[in-house]
Nucleic acid binder design. Sequence first.
DNA 1: AATCGCGCCTGACGGC
DNA 2: TGCCGTCAGGCGCGAT
Length: 271
Amino acid sequence: MPELPEVETTRAGITPHIINQSVRSVIIRQSRLRWQVPRSLKRELPGHCFHEVSRRGKYLLLCSTAGTLLIHLGMSGSLRILPSGSPVRKHDHIDLEFESGAVLRFTDPRRFGCMLWIKSDPMAHPLLSELGPEPLSTEFDGDYLKSRSRQKKQAVKNFIMDSKVVVGVGNIYANEALFASGIRPGKAAGRITLIQFQLLAQKIKSILHNAIKVGGTTLRDFTGSDGQPGYFSQSLMVYGRNEESCRVCGNTIRLSRLGQRSTFYCPHCQR
DNA sequence: AATCGCGCCTGACGGC
DNA sequence: TGCCGTCAGGCGCGAT
């Protein structure tokens, strides 16, 4: 499941291979992703270069003079750089072949991802225009969370997973950040103190930062690799640890359901 | 207006 | 063994 660190690792990994390289062809084997992949890509992209590869939340933006390719990896998607002619497997849906011979391949078994072609200002696109701040930006801090949470009865976990509040905090990192901050996931956002929000913002930043750093170590062999860096290599404190004992206090980790998502917490460490 | 919960999709896994 | 039901998850969008 690509969370923000995986998306950032992917961005950094593919950029040197595709930046300012002319696209030779586009192959669409499966166009039914979250939204239909536009056929127009096949005639509008070849001959153009991506002059910038950026990220907004978990969206990747490949910017060319002809338009911007907007990509989301959903929860099972990946982008890899491969040599031309690499064998095609079951869920390899889209290839961008460059004049250099490199192929950027989009693979996504569950097809929750998307690939869209935006010909106007991408930041004005409905998918991007309402997004909250980047969690690693200075704008995102305890004061910001406090000001956005006034009066809200919504569970703090749902609150921080809302992309209008802050982007890129998925289920795993929401669970981990709340544990690291000693906050019960179901507590109303409006009842969290400034001090708690300051700690929470700090923990979200440090956890994401560490995961990006870990992902970065797999960048070396990014080409041709499966590109599965990130959180698996770090030790999770609560996520997926239902009925196991807390690594801090030894109490039993509990599983509950919040906003249709598995929520893990330590009843002793988190209040 | 704010919040909830559905549904998209496949693979892994457990039970019989 | 093999089949079938259940679950996981990001996130937009319709329902409440």
